[in-house]
């Protein structure tokens, strides 16, 4: 879309933004179905089956249901904060796709600091989370919000460190450059460093997305539903969509950083398809982890992050630097 120089840059940005947003919303809706079907198969169930053939219309039915639901606002809630929180939460979750190139030149804005933009924007969702927890004026929500601040700050660091390994290998923060750098060898296949970084990326990613075993924010057996306990209708839907957008965004980032982005057999116009398939594979990996493990406690989560994951990813980063220096022949 960068080739359409006849149009004004603003119009191009608007159109491409709209296209990405539209495609994304559809993808998000159907990703929920994918997760439900996958989880159902894991648990020897069938999953959604009644709405449409094989439950294919289930996401639409869910959306309509949530649209029609009543918006309840608790009397004691801080109404401004309460109503604003889902939007504040949702915006950064969608914004992370802005820097994502879905194929060479196909994307909203292929920033030269794409990875940094992604990491910075995605950690902004904590603001919305905390507003939701605080504004609800509910004890469960408040405890959940406090846990959220703890956890997301703790896990953003190892997440950044893991994501920096491919950045260093490629020598660029631009996502399209990282994709190009993997044409010979995907970074996940990079001896030892690649696999370790990918594992760290998945672990920190699961935590940053608040999914089991790190879903202490929601923790419905302790905190009912955590920060979203008072939300209903579309506000609830915004929070859910935001969470799924974050997961899918992280999956796309994982596919871009480690799995060679749009590289794949066939003509180059199949690139976006390959990219989406790889992102969905990463998503299924997240889902698999989620539906396999028990939740761990908040203190254990923090100690895993600070005592294990962060030192390991730092070491990994150091090792990557050493490898790069040796390979470039600059001497040790």
């Amino acid at each position: 879309m960068t080739g359409t120089s006849a149009m004004s840059p603003l119009l191009v940005a608007l159109i491409s933004g709209g296209v990405v947003l539209g495609a994304l919303t559809g993808l998000l809706a159907y990703v929920t179905l994918l997760e439900r079907k996958f989880a159902a198969r894991m648990q020897s169930r069938v999953g959604p089956y009644r709405v449409g053939p094989h439950g294919l219309l289930q996401p639409i039915a869910d959306g309509v249901k949530l649209l029609l639901k009543e918006h309840l606002v608790p009397d004691a809630a801080d109404k401004g904060v309460f109503n604003l929180a889902p939007v504040i939460f949702f915006i950064p979750c969608m914004l992370i796709f802005a820097s994502m190139p879905f194929a060479p030149g196909l994307g909203v804005a292929d920033l030269n600091i794409g990875v940094l933009f992604f990491l910075a924007v995605s950690s902004m969702e904590i603001v919305g989370l905390f507003m939701a927890g605080w504004g609800s004026n509910n004890k469960y929500a408040l405890i959940s919000a406090m846990r959220a601040v703890n956890q997301i700050i703790s896990y953003d660091l190892p997440f950044v460190m893991a994501a920096l390994v491919p950045v260093m290998l490629a020598g660029s923060m631009k996502l399209s450059d990282i994709a190009t750098a993997q044409q010979g060898l995907w970074f996940i296949a990079y001896p030892v460093i690649g696999q370790l970084a990918f594992i760290a990326f998945i672990v920190a990613g699961v935590a940053a997305e608040n999914r089991t075993p790190f879903d202490i924010l929601e923790a419905e057996s302790e905190l009912i539903a955590g920060f979203r306990v008072e939300y209903s209708g579309m506000k609830f839907a915004f929070i859910q969509l935001g969470e799924y957008a974050h997961v899918i965004g992280t999956s796309f980032l994982g596919a871009a950083l480690f799995l060679g982005a749009w590289a794949g057999p066939g003509p180059s116009w199949l690139g976006p398809l390959w990219f989406t398939i790889k992102a969905l594979l990463v998503f299924v990996l997240f889902t698999w982890v989620r539906w396999s493990f028990l939740r761990i406690k908040v203190d254990q989560i923090l100690s895993i992050s600070w005592k294990l994951l962060l030192p390991l990813t730092l070491l990994l980063l150091l090792a990557t630097a050493v490898v790069i220096v040796i390979r470039s022949g600059a001497g040790v």
């Binding site: 989880a39 020897s44 089991t212 075993p213 419905e220 057996s221 539906w291 493990f293 028990l294 939740r295």
Partner: peptide, 21 residues
Amino acid sequence: WCLDMGGALGGGTSVFLYCIR
């Protein structure tokens, strides 16, 4: 018990549904 520790949207449900089966 696993449902309590693992969440209705997590591994706990898997164990729960196996046991119920």
